[in-house]
Simulated scan of single mutants.
Amino acid sequence: MVYDFDKLWNYNKPADTEMAFLKLLPKALECGTDYHLQLLTQIARTQGLQQQFDRAHHTLDEVEKQLNTQAFPQAAIRYLLERGRVFNSSGNKKDAAPLFEQAWQLASETGNDFYAADALHMLAIVASPEQALEWNLKALHLAENSADTRTQKWLGSLYNNIGWTYFDMADYEKALALFEKCLQWNEKQHHPMEVFIARWSAGKTLRLLQRTEEALHTQTGLLKEMIDKNMEEDGFVFEELAECLLQLNRPEQAKKYFAAAYNLLSKDIWLQKNEPARLSRLQKLG
Rank of each mutant, 00 (worst) to 15 (best):
78 R>P: 03
33 T>C: 01
86 V>R: 00
51 Q>Y: 11
110 T>P: 04
43 I>G: 01
82 E>W: 12
22 L>A: 14
105 Q>H: 12
31 C>P: 00
41 T>K: 00
26 P>M: 13
55 R>H: 08
110 T>W: 01
76 A>F: 04
107 A>T: 04
94 K>Y: 05
53 F>Q: 05
32 G>S: 11
76 A>W: 00
45 R>I: 00
86 V>L: 02
112 N>E: 10
83 R>A: 10
88 N>C: 08
76 A>L: 05
69 T>S: 10
53 F>I: 02
106 L>M: 11
35 Y>P: 01
31 C>M: 11
90 S>K: 13
37 L>A: 03
109 E>Q: 15
47 Q>A: 02
97 A>T: 12
26 P>A: 10
92 N>C: 06
35 Y>K: 09
111 G>Y: 14
73 P>K: 08
74 Q>T: 10
47 Q>K: 02
44 A>N: 00
24 L>C: 10
77 I>N: 00
64 E>G: 06
41 T>A: 05
27 K>C: 03
105 Q>G: 06
76 A>V: 06
104 W>R: 14
50 Q>Y: 01
97 A>Y: 12
96 A>K: 04
45 R>W: 04
103 A>D: 03
32 G>T: 13
86 V>A: 06
51 Q>H: 10
112 N>A: 03
51 Q>N: 10
19 M>P: 00
57 H>I: 09
57 H>D: 07
29 L>H: 13
104 W>N: 03
89 S>D: 12
59 T>I: 08
82 E>A: 08
51 Q>G: 02
23 K>R: 15
67 L>A: 05
65 K>C: 07
107 A>G: 05
53 F>Y: 15
115 Y>C: 00
24 L>G: 12
67 L>W: 08
58 H>M: 08
41 T>C: 15
83 R>I: 06
86 V>M: 04
85 R>H: 06
105 Q>R: 14
32 G>F: 13
43 I>Y: 02
67 L>H: 07
108 S>Y: 00
101 E>Y: 14
22 L>V: 15
28 A>F: 11
50 Q>P: 00
87 F>Q: 01
68 N>H: 09
104 W>K: 09
40 L>I: 09
85 R>C: 03
